[in-house]
């Protein structure tokens, strides 16, 4: 409740808006809308249509390395197909040419200091640059330290050992690549590809969602809230649908 002496919420808001408007040149003033709410026919913001074939960022050599890494982080087992089989490499490739890979929605000007872990990545380098530099540095390290082989040619246990050392920062990848930070980026993007909506290229056939029993892109559970202790009956659905829509499941 506002008293006569305290400014009302509306007045505070309008003062703030006035201050902002008067101090920033060219600012857009709030519109007041009367009558029907604004609405446009055909308006929707669908995810960009996924290009299924080809590589847009990674070279074929990089694809080989990234596939080998991703398939160690998510190996094929009783729970799910491998990360690469689920499209995780496709997902990362497509992300690298988008806003995430280019940091186009991040402030990337200096000054740059070594921050605390909670302050996040502190460098002008974009994820795309970091993947490229990280994969190259890893291959150089493997060639120098594992008898000239490429990472993909290592045995599974050897790959795991190398990745564990990269994760722990025990390996100096050189060329200014921070091993620990590189591993964190790889793991983050791998998990995203595995769990994100298949619309973005990974999580093929909603494999991770089926594994977890996650219902996917649904937002209304009113018909189920009272059914305590019962399994949710519906299969997952992606932004782009599920096989039952087109009748593949007859």
């Amino acid at each position: 409740m506002s008293t006569p002496t305290s400014p009302t919420r509306r007045r505070v808001l309008s003062t703030a808006a006035w201050l902002a408007a008067s101090s920033i040149p060219g600012v857009a003033f709030a519109r007041s809308i009367s009558g029907a709410l604004p609405w446009d026919a055909n308006s929707a913001a669908p995810p960009p249509k996924l290009q299924l074939n080809g590589w847009f960022f990674f070279t074929s050599a990089e694809v080989e390395t990234v596939t080998a890494i991703v398939d160690r982080l998510i190996p094929a087992d009783a729970l799910s197909p491998s990360g690469a089989e689920c499209g995780v490499v496709v997902y990362i490739d497509r992300q690298m040419i988008g806003p995430f890979g280019r940091s186009s929605r991040l402030y990337t000007q200096g000054p740059f200091f070594l921050g605390t872990p909670r302050q996040g990545w502190q460098s002008p380098d974009t994820p795309a640059q970091r993947w490229r530099a990280g994969v190259a540095a890893l291959e150089r390290w493997v060639a120098a330290n594992r008898t000239g082989r490429r990472f993909a040619a290592l045995a599974a246990e050897e790959k795991d050992a190398v990745l564990k050392d990269v994760e722990a920062g025990k390996i100096d990848l050189g060329a200014g690549v921070d091993a620990k930070a590189f591993f964190a980026l790889v793991l983050q993007n791998t998990m995203e590809g595995f769990f994100a909506d298949p619309a973005y290229g990974g999580n093929k056939d909603m494999a991770s969602w089926r594994m977890l029993g996650f219902p996917g892109a649904r937002y209304d559970y009113r018909d189920h809230v009272d059914k305590h202790g019962q399994r949710y009956p519906l299969p997952p659905v992606s932004i782009t649908g599920r096989p039952e829509w087109a009748g593949k499941v007859d």
Binding site: A36, A41, S43, A44
Partner: peptide
């Protein structure tokens, strides 16, 4: 396919709208 916005009258000013689902279906 196209979506639609409900009528606006003084008595019913809410104008609930049906989203366009043509991109998804």
């Amino acid at each position: 396919v196209i979506g639609s916005q409900g009528v606006h009258t003084a008595a019913k000013p809410t104008t609930p709208a049906m989203p366009s689902l043509g991109w998804r279906l």
